[in-house]
Design a protein around this nucleic acid. Structure first.
Length: 888
RNA sequence: GGGCGAUUGGCUCAGUCGGUUAGAGCGCACGGUUCACAUCCGUGAGGUCACUGGUUCGAAUCCAGUAUCGCCCACCA
């Protein structure tokens, strides 16, 4: 498809334009890096944080991918060896949660289907949803290399998982053992503490009396979970607690079960809490578990996978944990052993995904000893080999790494990578990275047929931890590994710093011996207008796809970028989105103007008119301003300051290009003589500067800039240097700054502003042409004013302009850098204007006094850098001149 | 209980190496039918940079403390 249109539609219709542009990009093949690495090219590689395969695009994604695409497009334009690897995550627990809900509607469950059918069902579900997220990313404009699209459950990932685990096993960093883990009864799996949310709740603290074994006396304990008493194996008190000192060493009798509970002393007990005596339930409480290990107490599991009481709970066996609680309480109340109950503020852990109250539970689990891995990952950041942005999050990272606990990697789920460990009847464990399992038991040589594979799967984050290199072909030494690894930037939200970034650092260093990325760029969370979290239940979610339809992907990208800073949450308000849309509209219209001016230029050229004169002041000025913007934007993008970059282009397009340059170009274009060569020159300047603006804008607003580029290239090929696609066009190179043009233009625009201000102050009709008198400050200024009159007249709507020395100063007077100006009208009794002038004089005087004092201060003059002192001196001179003019 | 962050006009946010008149957008006021754009143009008002103290010739910026809000981590039954 080729664009041969010579004009832009009156309005930018994102929904119509963007998909076609995306096709053009795809067809170009330029999302993929060149076949081989260009000589001397720098590498720039991002591994996309893989969205959940079942997920729909939300604003967090939109932010992630907008930022990454902006970085990628910038580096591509710079000619770097640029790669963005896309992919999706199998999200085992998340995907099962979604599928289980679907099954529930059909009256089925995981259990009724069985593992095999469940997984079949999952794969077909995947086939339906897998592409959805990818298509949504395309709507955003993501220029990822889809030819390298990956999935955390594809064969390459599976192999990476097996090999990584095998290496950990060989290194002695894997063990299997019984431990207390957090259990979600609804998801029926172990979950990480990171996957729990703690909520403040009002519960009840019950005090229960346990009789002593010898029948003499009793001891009372306080608990919020009475059902766990069935698993009690001791009672603990503080060693210094005199109230209970006599009881230590004796035994209490557990109600219902009659179990004998030793009364022990341990300083972990808070004597101030409750009765000062604690029931110890090692299998269902982490404090108690730790204490049991110190005192060698038995561990009795009283809750099963569905948190029903086990046979260890005697007569309560089979009851759900809460039913058991009620039953137990009633029985204790009846027997008088429930001695107190009161309301109690407490923190309860819930499963982050399903909201169910989780239960600490003793079970056999696979663990990775992460301490050595964490130390290395921490050192890499400390030494700056990987840099965390913003820097303050490095402390958070460090704190977590320093206090890290072994990683329980097993999950009792089905959808995911099965742990490649086989058990032999003799209890031996064989870990292999072979796709079809071991040939024989690694220890006793029993044949494979006698071995059974572990049914647990890996925590989703295990495969994610390998993502930066498994996507490039690891463990094979592929060309991609050699060329693109380690990657450059890992860009993601700070909320998964521990889940993901920390694990990638650890596993990356372990597996590949190098930091998987040079920079970690952590963006903040998107919040709703009131500063609250966006959530479906609150109904304050802004849907990115709907927003793209409404205002275009570019505007959304822009809104998500400008006015933000990494690591800090942002509020996405209606006003902000609207502002971004308006900016896109502005760009569109300014381009329409520039394009509309081109035929006039052609007409001039074909008329055989003489050569145009030298570039005008505005032309020189805008060139210089663009050069400055290029320098700034380049530095900002290199520093990953995307918000700064967005602000730079915003200001350039709107304040410099549209408000001043285009307005001044109109002066030239409005010349009567259609064959005036000046017109052609201005038109060409408009086109070539627009081209640079588009280049500068493309990384963040790819669609609209590409669309304009297509037409510009048709209409003014020279301006685009005939580069076909803006996406692959060269990043602009700044010309040398033109200081003279910049300062003259600054003076001229200041004069125009001042005169406009006078007009407003005078209350003159906006449409009226008013005479203006200007008394120049000097000969140079006079020349500048005379050169500028052609712009001054239409832009301030003044005519005629008389440039002459002043012999009177009406009240309504402006003082700009070039001199003093006043309108040729009767200010009358305009008290407000006089007052304004008075105020201005006072302001100037105050500033002068301050500067005077400053420069009179010897310690300032001696200690401040000479350049600063000089600057202040110049300013003082300038202010004095202004005051003289005004006060005249 | 620990840690981190934020506090800048009415609102949402920038603010580089400390440099002396602190910026932007929105909102507000006033004026505008200029052939790119009312999703616009012009003009303006509006800030003792949370507070206290310190360092410095000079502090929104660095240091210490305080307050308020937010987040993260943490085993008080």
């Amino acid at each position: 498809m080729t664009t041969t249109r010579s004009e832009l539609a009156p309005r930018y219709d994102a929904a119509a334009v963007e998909p076609a542009i995306y096709e053009k990009w795809l067809d170009s093949g330029a999302f993929a890096p060149a076949e081989s690495r260009p000589e001397s090219a720098e590498r720039f590689v991002i591994t996309m944080p893989p969205p959940n395969v079942t997920g729909a695009l939300h604003m967090g994604h939109a932010l992630t991918f907008s930022v990454e695409d902006t970085m990628i497009r910038y580096h591509r334009m710079r000619g770097d060896d640029t790669l963005w690897v896309p992919g999706v995550d199998h999200a085992s627990i998340g995907a099962q949660f979604v599928l289980d809900k679907i099954l529930a509607e059909e009256g089925e469950t995981r259990q009724t289907l069985g593992r095999e059918r469940y997984l079949e069902r999952m794969w077909s579900f995947m086939d339906e949803t897998r592409d959805v997220i990818g298509l949504q990313l395309r709507r955003l404009g993501c220029s990822a290399d889809w030819g390298r699209n990956r999935f955390t459950m594809d064969e390459q990932s599976a192999r990476a998982v097996r090999v990584a685990f095998r290496r950990l096993w060989d290194a002695g960093l894997v063990y299997r053992g019984e431990a207390l883990v957090t259990w979600c009864p609804r998801c029926r799996t172990t979950i990480s503490d990171l996957e729990t949310v703690h909520r403040d709740e009002t519960g009840t603290l019950w005090t229960i009396r346990y009789g002593l074994a010898d029948g003499d006396g009793s001891i009372s304990v306080a608990t919020t979970r009475p059902e766990t008493m069935l698993g009690d194996t001791a009672i603990a008190v503080h060693p210094d607690d005199k109230r209970h000192a006599a009881l230590v060493g004796r035994e209490a009798l557990l109600p219902f079960l009659g179990r004998r509970l030793p009364i022990i002393a341990d300083s972990a007990v808070d004597p101030e809490f409750g009765t000062g005596a604690v029931k110890i339930t090692p299998a269902h409480d982490s404090n108690d578990y730790a204490m049991a290990r110190r005192h060698d107490l038995p561990l009795i599991n009283v809750l099963d996978e569905e948190v029903r009481v086990t046979e260890n709970g005697g007569e309560f066996a089979g009851l759900d944990r809460y039913a058991a609680r009620q039953e137990i309480l009633e029985r204790l109340r009846a027997s008088g052993e429930l001695v107190a109950e009161r309301s109690h503020q407490m923190v309860v852990a819930h499963c982050e995904r399903c909201g169910t109250v989780v239960e600490p539970r003793l079970s056999v689990q696979w663990f990775i000893r992460v301490k050595p891995l964490a130390e290395r990952a921490l050192a890499s950041v400390r030494e700056g080999l990987t840099e965390i942005m913003p820097p303050h999050l490095e402390k958070v990272y460090a704190h977590w790494m320093e206090n890290i606990l072994d990683w329980a990697v097993g999950r009792q789920l089905w959808w995911g990578h099965r742990i490649p460990a086989w058990f032999c009847p003799d209890g031996h464990v064989t870990v292999t990275d072979a796709a079809d399992g071991p040939d024989a038991c690694a220890e006793c040589g029993r044949s494979a047929s006698e071995l059974t594979q572990e049914t647990d799967i890996f925590d989703t984050w295990f495969s994610s931890a390998l993502w930066p290199f498994s996507t490039l072909g690891w463990p094979d030494e592929t060309p991609d590994m050699a060329r693109f690894y380690p990657t450059t930037v890992m860009e993601t939200g700070y909320d998964i710093l521990f889940f993901w970034v920390a694990r990638m650092m650890m596993m990356g260093l372990f597996c590949t011996d190098v930091e998987p990325f040079r920079v970690v760029y952590l963006h903040g969370m998107i919040r709703a207008a009131g500063g609250t979290k966006m959530s479906k239940t609150k109904g304050n979610v802004v849907d990115p796809l709907g927003m793209i339809d409404e205002i275009g992907a570019d505007a959304l990208r822009f809104a998500l970028t400008i006015g933000t800073s990494p690591g800090h949450d942002q509020r996405l308000t209606e006003a902000k989105l609207e502002g971004a849309r308006n900016f896109a509209n502005k760009l569109w219209n300014v381009a329409r103007f520039v394009l509309g001016a081109q035929p006039a230029a052609d007409a001039v050229l074909s008329s055989g008119a003489g050569p145009p004169g030298d570039p005008s002041l505005p032309e020189r000025w805008i060139q210089s301003r663009i050069a400055e913007a290029i320098e700034r934007a380049t530095a900002q993008l290199d520093a990953l300051d995307l918000a700064g970059y967005a602000a730079t282009v915003n200001e350039l397009v709107w304040s410099d290009y549209a408000d001043w340059f285009v307005e001044m170009a109109k002066v030239e274009l409005r010349r009567d003589d259609a064959s005036d060569p000046e017109r052609a020159r201005v038109a060409a300047a408009l086109a070539s500067t627009l081209a640079d603006v588009l280049r500068l804008l493309h990384p963040i607003m790819p669609f609209i800039s590409e669309e304009i580029w297509g037409v510009l290239r048709t209409v003014a090929p020279a301006a685009t240097r005939d580069e076909e696609l803006l996406m692959t066009a060269a990043w602009p190179i700044p010309v040398e700054r033109d200081a003279a043009a910049e300062s003259e233009m600054t003076a001229l625009t200041a004069l125009i502003r001042d005169v406009r201000n006078l007009r407003t102050q005078s209350g003159s009709a906006a449409a009226a042409w008013l005479p203006l008198f200007v008394a120049p400050a000097g000969a140079e200024e006079q020349a500048a004013i005379e050169r500028g009159v052609r712009y001054l007249e239409p832009m301030a709507r003044v005519r005629p302009v008389t440039v002459d020395t002043a012999d009177e100063r009406p009240a309504l007077v402006a003082s700009a850098l070039l001199g003093v100006a006043w309108l040729g009208i009767e200010p009358g009794e305009d008290g407000a204007a006089a007052e304004r002038r008075h105020r201005r004089v006072q302001e100037l005087q105050a500033a002068i006094d301050r500067l005077d004092a400053l420069l009179a201060n010897p310690s300032f003059v001696e200690r401040a850098p000479a350049a600063i002192v000089e600057k202040e001196r110049r300013r003082l001179t300038e202010l004095r001149a202004q005051l003289r003019q005004l006060d005249g």
